[in-house]
Simulated assay, not measured.
Amino acid sequence: MDTDRLPGCYRHPERDTGIRCVRCDRPICPECMISASVGFQCPECVREGSGTGRRPAPHAPRTLAGGAVAADPRLVTKILIGINVALFLVAQAVPGLPVRLELLGRYVEYYGAPLEGVSTGEYHRLLTSVFLHTEWWHLIGNMIGLWVLGGPLEAALGRGRYLAVYLLSGLGGSALVYLLTAPNTATLGASGAIFGLLGATAVLARRMRYEMRPVIIMVALMLALTFVRIGGMSVSWQAHVGGLVTGALVTLGLLARGSGRKRVLVQWGSCVAVFLLAVLLIAVRTADLAALG
């Protein structure tokens, strides 16, 4: 008998879940959970109404990944959207700011200007570029994707784990761009992180035993669009693929079965392992560019 197995949803027993109704404490899957003022409730408790038959939950409600259930399951998503929008407006108001924040390996301007880029120690570009957009349509498209994919993931994983998926996906996408593109290739945008959320959604759907065909079709369509030129601009397939793979790997670790400290160790250990893999790719590319002089 697998003692580490999560309980099944009381309405969908085949779906493992770490979320419980705050009123009756029955396990509920994301399809059945209904947002309440605090945590989530099952459909039956919602129908009964808040004034009758309330029973205190013996356990604090937890997300599927074991994190605490937040009153606002989209708070981190809203903050991330706010940061992206704010940086877009600042970039429009401050000429030259995108040049200092966008991702590139190494760039030399004419007339003896100094080197710029990650290979010269400007490692902040690996993450600042993930929050930077220069076109309004680019920003809107990514923010719609962040809202649609991010909300359900944040509710299922919890705030801290969800933020880890987003940031590591963005870093993974940047690392692959840095590794595989010319050192003076300028890249920016949140699409690497968004594709990470797409990879995380695929892993979550598989774990919850949802119908996978719609998810597979969505992933295939998004990857196909990666190789289409939009408005004369090419899309960075390296950022998309790197983010997709990173998001899937991180979520696999976060949804590891188990309980207590052992599960937490596996979850955050997997995040550290993915981070170190990205650092390794960055170090390899930096050494390669240094050898080229």
Score class of each variant (00 low, 15 high):
R125I: 06
H124W: 14
L132N: 11
R125E: 03
H124E: 10
H124Y: 11
G145S: 10
N142D: 12
S129I: 08
T120L: 05
I144N: 00
L127Q: 02
M143H: 00
N142M: 01
E122I: 09
F131V: 15
L127C: 07
Y123A: 13
Y123L: 09
G117E: 02
E116Q: 07
E122T: 05
E122P: 04
T134A: 12
V118W: 01
T120N: 07
V118P: 03
H124P: 01
M143E: 12
E116H: 04
H138Q: 14
G121K: 05
G141I: 14
L126K: 02
I144E: 00
I144Q: 00
W137N: 12
G121R: 04
G117M: 04
H124G: 06
S119N: 06
L139R: 04
H138V: 15
E135Q: 14
G141P: 12
M143N: 11
H124T: 08
L127V: 08
E135C: 08
I140K: 13
T134W: 11
G141E: 07
G141L: 12
L132Y: 13
S119F: 02
L127N: 09
G141K: 05
F131A: 11
H124C: 03
H124R: 09
G141S: 10
N142P: 01
G141Y: 12
S119V: 01
L132P: 11
E135G: 06
H138G: 10
F131R: 02
V118I: 07
S119D: 06
G145H: 01
H138T: 15
G117Y: 02
V118D: 01
G117P: 05
T120F: 05
S119K: 03
G121C: 11
F131Q: 06
G121V: 09
S119L: 03
V118Y: 04
T120W: 07
G121T: 06
G121W: 05
L132T: 05
I140A: 15
L126T: 03
L146H: 00
G117L: 02
W137F: 15
W137P: 09
N142S: 13
R125V: 04
W137E: 12
L146C: 02
R125L: 13
I140C: 09
L146R: 00
H124D: 10
L146T: 13
G121Y: 07
L139E: 15
L132A: 12
L127H: 04
E122L: 10
N142I: 09
G145I: 02
F131L: 13
L126G: 00
L132W: 07
N142K: 11
E135P: 01
V130S: 12
T120C: 08
E116I: 05
G145N: 07
